[in-house]
Computed example of a mutant assay.
Amino acid sequence: MTALGLLHPGHSAEEDYPRIEQLLGSDIRIDLVRTDVGEDARRVDALREMGSPERLAEGVQELRHAGAEAVVWACASGGFVHGWEGAQEQVRALAQAAGMPASSTSFAFVHAVRELGVHRVAVGATYPEDVASLFAGFLRAAGVDVVAVKSSGVVTAAEAGTWGEPELLALARAADHPDAQALLLPDNALHTAAHVTALEKELGKPVLTANQVTVWEALRLADRRVNAPELGALFTREPIVQV
């Protein structure tokens, strides 16, 4: 049994994780610990506070007791708003507090892009424009070529959590770019686990979503690789890459 630990702010889209766990197989367990959201606002100051060391440290004891082998901060915006260096420090502090390998959804996107072997991506962000731009800057700091960014201006996780497949498909179509080899949807509050394959079929290219890459990152830290085509190209043995 491989136990994966996730720190997740609040309840938005938490239903994605049992679905992903079921698709991964019976020997993988996802332990989800909810952290204090504070103010549900897509403002930089609120997002930085949401991912503060104190808030994250509160949940790690429960994950240790559950036997988690790795921990991932399951909040993209609560990571990349700190910038590249700040997000690295956040993860280092989390690993020290947890006593196990640690990462965040922000770095999961970077590692997943590299896993797929793509270099040019488009971003479909629910966030306000300034926050979406920070995610693009984070990716560029990692050497990823961001060819397009679409912002939807959603100001709370609660609102993003109400989106279904029609809204996801509309965002994906609007955000996609002919030069992009993959599309990234960076919001853990979106319910995406049931829709990744539909999104990839619609666009004809890999689609990376926040909850999907978060679990993949935890598996990577635990040195596990799982073939689960229902979770998209990232979880297949031979990633789809457009050149």
Results as ranks from 00 to 15, higher is better:
residue 132 A to P: 03
residue 150 K to A: 10
residue 2 T to I: 00
residue 223 D to Q: 15
residue 203 L to P: 05
residue 222 A to Y: 09
residue 130 D to W: 06
residue 14 E to K: 07
residue 53 P to W: 00
residue 213 V to F: 10
residue 118 V to Y: 02
residue 73 W to E: 02
residue 216 W to H: 06
residue 89 E to M: 13
residue 206 P to L: 09
residue 191 H to V: 15
residue 190 L to V: 07
residue 25 G to E: 00
residue 153 G to E: 12
residue 181 Q to R: 09
residue 198 A to R: 14
residue 73 W to Q: 06
residue 96 Q to A: 12
residue 170 A to P: 12
residue 130 D to L: 08
residue 188 N to V: 13
residue 94 L to E: 01
residue 231 L to N: 00
residue 179 D to G: 12
residue 234 L to V: 04
residue 61 Q to G: 15
residue 122 A to S: 07
residue 102 A to D: 06
residue 83 G to L: 07
residue 23 L to I: 03
residue 138 F to S: 02
residue 172 A to Y: 02
residue 58 E to L: 12
residue 5 G to D: 01
residue 83 G to Y: 05
residue 239 P to Y: 11
residue 39 E to S: 11
residue 13 A to Y: 01
residue 108 A to T: 08
residue 200 E to S: 08
residue 176 D to G: 07
residue 223 D to Y: 05
residue 105 T to R: 12
residue 129 E to C: 12
residue 59 G to I: 00
residue 25 G to Q: 01
residue 77 S to E: 07
residue 56 L to G: 00
residue 113 V to I: 14
residue 140 R to N: 12
residue 187 D to Y: 06
residue 10 G to V: 10
residue 124 G to Y: 01
residue 191 H to P: 08
residue 32 L to I: 09
residue 81 V to W: 04
residue 29 R to G: 05
residue 236 T to V: 13
residue 152 S to V: 10
residue 194 A to E: 11
residue 85 E to T: 15
residue 128 P to D: 14
residue 213 V to M: 15
residue 139 L to I: 13
residue 243 V to T: 12
residue 101 P to C: 13
residue 1 M to A: 10
residue 8 H to L: 14
residue 81 V to E: 03
residue 180 A to N: 08
residue 66 A to T: 07
residue 151 S to Y: 05
residue 152 S to C: 09
residue 156 T to L: 12
residue 58 E to P: 05
residue 23 L to V: 08
